[in-house]
Amino acid sequence: MSPTIRSLVIPVSDLDATKAVYTALLGSPHTDESYYVGYNVDGFEVALNPAGAGGGPVAFADVEDLDATRATLLAAGATERDAPRQVAPGARVCVLADADGNPIGLRGK
């Protein structure tokens, strides 16, 4: 199974102000919490993350084996930006960076 990009996480400094803009564009969020606001756009997740470290949006690729994919990308020259962490039951994420510092998000088990 090849990785599929199904979500875009946008780090924000002012959740309420940013949420107003994205709600005007995308409609009401399906999740509206102080730690995460999520919109479903035809099966694609657009999320606002007030705890984001900045550096722009991160597209997350869904992968079968997060650890194996992470190891493959690190061996190919990627660097680690955010170590793997649990975000929901059965779901972990991490963020790597390519040679130019562009983020590469991975989401899997």
Rank of each mutant, 00 (worst) to 15 (best):
L74C: 07
D62T: 13
V9C: 04
H30I: 15
D100P: 00
G43H: 09
A47F: 10
E45M: 08
A24Q: 11
V41A: 15
A71T: 12
M1P: 08
P50Y: 09
S13C: 00
S34I: 03
F44G: 11
G77D: 09
V21T: 14
V95D: 04
I10N: 07
R81L: 10
T69N: 03
K109G: 14
D100R: 03
D100K: 05
A59Q: 05
S2N: 12
A78V: 13
F44R: 08
V87I: 15
T18V: 06
D100V: 01
D14H: 02
G90A: 10
G90I: 10
V37D: 02
K109I: 03
T18C: 00
A91I: 13
E33D: 06
L15R: 04
L66R: 07
S2V: 05
T4H: 14
T72P: 00
D65V: 02
L66T: 08
V95A: 09
D65T: 06
L74P: 07
P3F: 13
K19C: 06
A20L: 09
L106M: 05
V41C: 08
A75D: 15
L73K: 06
R85F: 10
S2M: 11
V9M: 11
G52V: 01
K19D: 06
T72F: 01
A17E: 13
V46C: 05
D98Y: 03
V9F: 12
Y35W: 15
P84Y: 04
L25Q: 01
D14K: 03
V63A: 11
D16S: 14
I5W: 10
A71S: 14
H30G: 14
F44W: 01
P89G: 05
A17I: 03
S7M: 14
G108F: 09
R85G: 10
N40K: 02
R70I: 08
R92Y: 12
K109T: 09
R85Q: 15
A97F: 00
